[in-house]
Structure formats: C-alpha cells, structure tokens
Design a protein around this nucleic acid. Structure first.
Length: 312
DNA sequence: ACGGAAACCTGCTGGC
DNA sequence: TGCCAGCAGGTTTCCG
C-alpha cells in the first residue's frame, strides 16, 4: 500500500521523467478517476492539456504536479472576460490503495485499470523519437486526480494545493514541527495509533508504518495520547521518521527505470518489516509470538510482551 | 471532540 | 469445480 515512502518514490520518478515536459494530450477513462474534480473530467482534461509541468511535490500521501500557466483556448475558458494572469495550478494525485504512475511508450499495451493517459511532449530523457506516456493505473480506484488552485501554506512559506491544505506536514518535511506535534498529540484524548493515522495531525503514516513505529518504540497502539510522556511521543515520531526513511532508501533503488512504481512496502521493504503482517511469528526483539488484532476496521500487529497496553 | 461505521472498489484466498 | 464470505485499506462522510 502506498504510504509516504512509496509516494516519495513515485514523486522522484516523476521529477526525473515528467518535470519540464508538456502534457500534450490527455485522456481520462471512466467516471471515477476525476470524481473529486468538481467541474468534471472534461474540464480537467481540457485545462491540463498543453500545460508544462514545473515541479513534482508531495505532502504526506498527496502528490502534485505544479503546472506553468498556459494559454487555454478561449472557447474553453470558464470566465473569458478575466484579464488577469492565470494563477498557478496543480494536478493533484492521490494513489489511494493501489494507484500507480507509469511512464512508458505511448504504444505500450493498455493496462486493465488504466484510468488516465498523458502523452508527454519532447524533449524528454527517454528513448529519443519514442513518444512517451504518463499513465495513472489503479485497480481499486480509491485514488484519483483533481486540478486545483494553490493557497498559502499554513505550515510554512510557499503554497499548497487547496485540497491538500487540510493535511499536516509529514515527518520528512522541513515544515514538520516535532515539538508542536508532540504537544498536539498529547492534547488529544485518543489512542496513539489513531493519532498517528490522523493526517491532519501528522501526515504520511498509514497502517503499516504506524505499526512499525509503535513496535520500535515499544508502545501499544491503544495507549491514550494524554497519558504518554512527551519523550515517549517524541520517540514514536522519531521512529516513524527513521522507518520511513529506511523504507525510502530501499524503495528508491528501483526508480531509475522508466517505471515509476509503487512497490516499496510490498516489495523491497517487506522483508524489513518487524511488525506488520507477522502475526504468529516470533518478535524479532524478544521472541514472543506477534499478535494481530482488529483495530479501526483494520489489522494491528504488535508484540504482546514488548508493547503493553498499560505501563506496569 | 471523539468514536464507530459505512461507503467507495477489485482481486485474491480459504472454506464448504 | 464453484460459490460466497472475508480480507486488504486511505479517505470522506455521516451519525451518535
């Protein structure tokens, strides 16, 4: 599942293969891919078409391509009388649970669950003379695309897409204020794993890395935030950052290819997981059998000996 | 403010 | 062999 490290691998791939190029032709398939883009799929396609990609950015699990202002044909303008310079826009991408961004030859066989195709204008870093395409492939269609304006970032300098503004910075960002997050977590009265998964408190962490961070910190996910010491919360956040950085280092080995793939957790890093998916296997620290329990309509994996529900 | 659950999806697996 | 339930889970939304 794409959590922060997997999304960052995709971002780096886009940075290498898509930034600086124009999205020459856009084709969207099906109703769901642009369902969050309120003006509709046709609006998104027509406004993205011809735009040059300026940069590939990310916050938490959200990914976006900032687009240079470009001339939209008069017939497609929503407000043809507006004279001011067009504002910067971003194509926001969320991979959901199964989304992928692929860069491949335009004539490559269409994937079964390909929902969007962006033909890239030359020049590019790929095979000269071969038209290339950026594709959004998503089996479970929880992911999607939308085109939005930028608003000032509440958490630092610069701007973020409107639809990303409600998300907190992630632990790998400059804008991440660890002391502030520790305080915010402890002001809550909720279980620590819930807090870790709350993207408005701290972004980028999903079920897998939440379990990994808690295992490393030896804290049970059901412990209450307002009963944890500041140093304990800080430790959990530090572990979250290091485990995601390690996963990124391993997932990052593959983005050299034209594939901009999402296989960090399911591929390279899987063998490094200490908690997630290890029910019934011995804890790598103490040997006790790892447990799986239902939590928030999903699974939680933990060591019943290292991670006690309450402190003794 | 918080908790719980449903809804959105497809593919795979295990039980009968 | 086939069918069905269950599971995977990020995010939003609604309700209590």
């Amino acid at each position: 599942m794409p959590e922060l490290p997997e999304v960052e691998v995709v971002r780096r791939g886009l940075e290498g293969h898509v930034v600086g190029r124009r999205l020459q032709h856009v084709e969207l398939r099906g109703m769901r891919v642009a369902r969050r883009h309120v003006p509709g799929a046709a609006d998104l396609a027509s406004r993205v078409e011809g735009a040059q990609v300026v940069e590939a950015r990310r916050r938490g699990k959200y990914l976006w391509l900032t687009l240079a202002p470009h001339e939209v044909p008069r017939s497609l303008r929503q407000a043809p009388d507006t004279a001011q310079a067009p504002a910067e826009e971003a194509l926001v991408i969320h991979l959901g649970m199964s989304g992928q961004m692929l860069v491949e030859p335009a004539d490559a066989p269409l994937e079964k669950h390909c929902h969007a195709q962006f033909t890239l204008a030359e020049p590019g870093v790929d095979v000269p003379g071969t038209p290339m395409q950026l594709r959004f492939v998503d089996q479970r269609t929880f992911g999607g695309l939308q085109l939005t304006d930028m608003v000032p970032d509440r958490h630092g300098p610069g701007v973020v897409p409107t639809v990303v503004a409600h998300i907190a910075p992630d632990p790998l960002e400059e804008a991440f204020d660890e002391a502030g997050v520790v305080a915010a977590v402890r002001r809550r009265h909720t279980q620590i794993k819930r807090a870790l998964l709350d993207q408005t408190l701290i972004s980028g962490i999903g079920n897998i890395y939440a379990d990994e961070a808690l295992w490393r910190a030896r804290v049970h996910g059901e412990r209450m935030t307002d009963r944890l010491r500041p140093a304990t919360v800080r430790g959990i956040l530090d572990h979250a950052r290091t485990v995601m950085t390690e996963a990124l280092d391993q997932g990052g080995t593959s983005f050299d290819a034209l594939y901009v793939n999402v296989n960090g957790a399911s591929g390279y890093f899987e063998r490094s997981l200490n908690a997630y998916g290890r029910a019934g296997q011995p804890c790598r620290r103490c040997g006790a059998l790892m447990r799986r329990e239902r939590f928030m309509n999903r699974s939680s994996y933990f060591c019943p000996r290292c991670q006690r529900r309450q402190r003794r």
